[in-house]
Design a protein around this nucleic acid. Structure first.
Lengths: 156, 156
DNA sequence: CCGAATTAGTTACAATTGAAACCATTATAG
DNA sequence: CTATAATGGTTTCAATTGTAACTAATTCGG
């Protein structure tokens, strides 16, 4: 008997691979632009973004809303503080907790970056019609839910 | 006049963000499993995978088919060589070029990992019906094409 | 109250990743 | 031919990222 039955796994039709390639392509494109135009990293941009929508969050709340861990948030806020794009106060009631919000300068940066980000997204989705866009939204929602509930891949 | 018109950018409906979160969730789940079960990193897995489908590729060809850069391929192949999961020869016609293929042990590992990977993928897509799967395929194809042709985000 | 356990956030250290410099070999121009 | 350029691949160094340990403040059990 020759070879055992080969499981045909074509890498470029393998969903995790495709997601990774797509996400990397998009992210590095955006990251480059953010960096050279605004001196922002992607984690910094995320923090800026949630604080623009919702001021006075703690670091932990920011972490939750940006899907970043607390170390990443700490680094991003440290950098944003140094650039004076956010301000930090200490919570009066709990002196461990800090309260973060955009500074005037931070708002100005946000007002510049947000349209840029939205323009990129619009361009990216430009080939999709309305039906396809809502299908995309639907699929991403399902997949993320599923991936999250599956958690650390347990099988064999 | 008060605030300038706020551009409403909700992070969790921003496509690049959603792709990043989904891809990270899936990748870290799989990476953990590959690592603890087979001692493989994702780059190593990718190399293994393309060599299983197509033996006797050069490093550059592997790079192209895995969407990795040549440094990543070099590291992955070095590690796979040390573990004796692939073999390397020097091309007779061009002594810079190497020719890579799975070893017996490499094939054995592949035969184990591939079903695992496919099972993970199947579970991930389990909530999707046939229509949705083909829509997903379609959308990913379009978006990747678009992201690639847009290249380094140029705008403002 | 007081000490153990929790929680918010930072710091330190190791592993990953990317960019540029670097060999060795082959191709090309004069 | 020979010098220069280009190519395949590896190594080096710096930047990013993740994990674990740590500090400071708060809560909880007794």
């Amino acid at each position: 008997m020759p070879k055992p039955a080969r499981v045909p796994l074509q890498l470029d039709s393998f969903l995790p691979y495709r997601l990774s390639v797509l996400s990397n392509t998009v992210s590095t494109a955006i990251a480059g632009a953010y960096h050279e135009r605004f001196g922002l990293s992607i984690p910094e941009w995320r923090v800026l973004c949630v604080l623009a929508m919702t001021p006075d969050l703690s670091a932990a709340e920011v972490a939750q809303r940006t899907a970043m861990d607390k170390v990443a948030v700490s680094r991003a806020t440290a950098s944003l503080l140094k650039m004076r794009r956010i301000e930090r106060r200490i919570s009066r009631s709990d002196r461990r907790r800090s309260v973060l919000r955009l500074s005037k300068a931070g708002e100005a940066v946000y007002e510049q970056v947000a349209p840029f980000a939205l323009a990129y997204e619009r361009d990216l989705m430009q080939p999709l019609d309305e039906r396809e866009r809502s299908a995309l939204d639907h699929l991403l929602r399902i997949l993320l839910g599923r991936a999250t509930e599956m958690g650390p891949a347990t099988r064999t």
